[in-house]
Design a protein around this nucleic acid. Structure first.
Lengths: 158, 158
DNA sequence: TTCATTGCAAATTATTTGCATTTGA
DNA sequence: TCAAATGCAAATAATTTGCAATGAA
């Protein structure tokens, strides 16, 4: 039901651009849809698909992810771990416009998603004051998660 | 006058950690200070320094930037162009806490800085609701700059 | 049929690492 | 004096590219 929508939308967008619908493209999008919220790197997607589609090439995964990003079906996030990560596009979320950011713990490396829509205000302000038309954004917070903060406090009191 | 402050702060922080003050470290920080707001990659810094210090090694630039980032003297930005970029830390800005974000034009690739402090509110909200202690953040907006928007509108009306 | 797409291998690019040598405290 | 830092070259890791073969329209 969910990836039905994704498949249809992919087909529509590809046809609009005169591009071809291939099983590789469908499968990669499907893999992302089945792992919503997971920040997958190309290599990881490639590994995941090997069982169901062993003849898949890594270069195709890279090329397809770039394409899916361009036609706005997937989101890109850079968690500063040396590779680009992807997740199924926020366009597929139920409600219209709640976006999520990432809290990155500098101590344990954990990634914590955080929902918020305070940014809309800021985007509007940007459009008005600069004329820049905002299509997307990426917001990351670096710091220390609750657990690591507590751990370092405990250490201090020793 | 300005890089005096940077040099002194670097010396202080290095001594605190039992690390050595070397001319390479001083020079790299100075290069960043002299190019405030410029988002330099390691390779670029390396090239810039060649004239004044030809024996400098690229690996030292990488190691030093990482160090300067850890001791919070430089900021890191990832503009999704395949390399990590650095600029002199916001700690050196005159006033205490106005931070700047980046508007990235997907059409012409231009990077437009944008000043704002609406994020403080959000950071506070995060600390209260999740216990995550925010030390830093990175906010990027992707879209189309005024010039490119106007250009594509003009094209549509043809 | 025909051109976009794929898979593979080789190339490229940013970054890291090992190690002998140098240098600051 | 002596561990920390450097420069160099080699290693690694993510991504891209060239090209012949394949497959969707």
């Amino acid at each position: 039901m969910e990836q039905e929508k994704a498949h249809d939308l992919l087909k529509k967008k590809l046809k609009e651009k005169g591009l071809k619908v291939t099983k590789q493209r469908l499968l990669i999008l499907q893999t992302l849809a089945e792992h919503r919220g997971m920040h997958l790197a190309a290599e990881e997607i490639f590994e995941m698909m090997k069982s169901g589609y062993p003849e898949m090439g890594l270069a195709t995964v890279y090329r397809t992810l770039q394409l899916l990003y361009e036609i706005q079906l997937v989101d890109r996030i850079n968690l500063d771990d040396g590779c680009i990560r992807y997740e199924i596009g926020h366009a597929f979320e139920g409600d219209s416009k709640h976006c999520h950011h990432h809290l990155i713990c500098r101590t344990c490396g954990r990634i914590i998603p955080f929902e918020d829509d305070l940014l809309d205000e800021l985007e509007e302000h940007i459009e008005l004051s600069t004329g820049f038309h905002v299509l997307d954004h990426e917001l990351k917070f670096y710091g220390q998660c609750r657990e690591c903060s507590e751990a370092s406090m405990r250490k201090e009191n020793t």
